[in-house]
Each structure stands twice: as C-alpha cells, then as structure tokens.
Simulated scan of single mutants.
Amino acid sequence: MSKRKKPLPDIQKILARLEKELNCRYFTISQIPEAVTWAERGNVSIHENFHSRRKQSYHVISGSKEAIEAFCNFVGIPLDAIKASEFYRFWHVNWTL
C-alpha cells in the first residue's frame, strides 16, 4: 500500500483572502521587478520562491514592517522569521504551504 501525499493547499483561495484582507498582490517570477516596486511602496508582494521546486514555497516582501507582520500573523508565520533585505528597502520572509 503506497502512501498518498496530502494535496497541496489551493494557493488561489488563500491569495483571494489575502488580497481582500491585506494589501497583497501575487507576482510570477518574471514579474519580480514589479513585485519589488510594489513592496517598496509599503504593500505586500508574494512571488514563487525559485529556491524550492518540491514544495509550494513563496517569497513575501514589503517595504513596511507592519504590513509584513500583519501578513505573518494572518498566515501563522512567526514574526522572528522576518528579515531585513541587504540590498533593497524591504522586509522579507519565506512562506511554505
């Protein structure tokens, strides 16, 4: 008997809730420059994390620490996971579903 993997969460449903509750937008990897611009304005940008192909992993960025803290509280990420970017004017965190 083989073990069945638990199905991955539906990211579209989660994103719809995030966009409704917080000022979040999803960007593809090719849209990262736009995601950075959106984040630098104090919004929350979410894009696929190209470091992980096996899991649903996303990079979340914002120029506002308060906005990314609200995001983390909303999805259950510990606030100590938030890091300051060394190269850009934003905060970031990895989000794995």
Rank of each mutant, 00 (worst) to 15 (best):
T28W: 03
T28H: 02
T28K: 07
I29D: 08
I29M: 07
S30M: 05
S30I: 04
S30Q: 08
S30E: 12
Q31E: 15
Q31S: 10
I32E: 04
I32V: 13
I32Q: 00
I32K: 05
I32R: 03
I32D: 01
P33I: 07
A35M: 04
A35H: 05
V36N: 00
T37W: 05
T37F: 14
W38F: 15
W38C: 00
W38H: 07
W38Y: 15
A39N: 00
A39S: 13
E40D: 06
E40K: 06
R41Q: 15
R41S: 11
R41V: 04
R41F: 08
R41M: 11
R41N: 12
G42R: 04
G42K: 03
G42C: 03
G42T: 06
N43W: 06
N43H: 07
N43E: 05
N43C: 10
N43D: 01
V44I: 14
V44T: 07
S45Y: 04
S45H: 01
S45G: 12
S45D: 01
I46A: 01
I46Y: 02
I46R: 00
I46K: 01
E48S: 13
E48R: 11
N49C: 13
F50I: 06
F50H: 07
F50S: 14
H51N: 09
S52M: 15
S52D: 14
R54S: 12
R54P: 06
R54T: 14
K55N: 08
K55S: 08
Q56D: 15
Q56R: 07
Q56P: 08
Q56E: 14
Q56C: 07
S57N: 10
S57A: 15
Y58H: 07
Y58L: 12
H59N: 13
V60I: 15
V60G: 06
I61D: 03
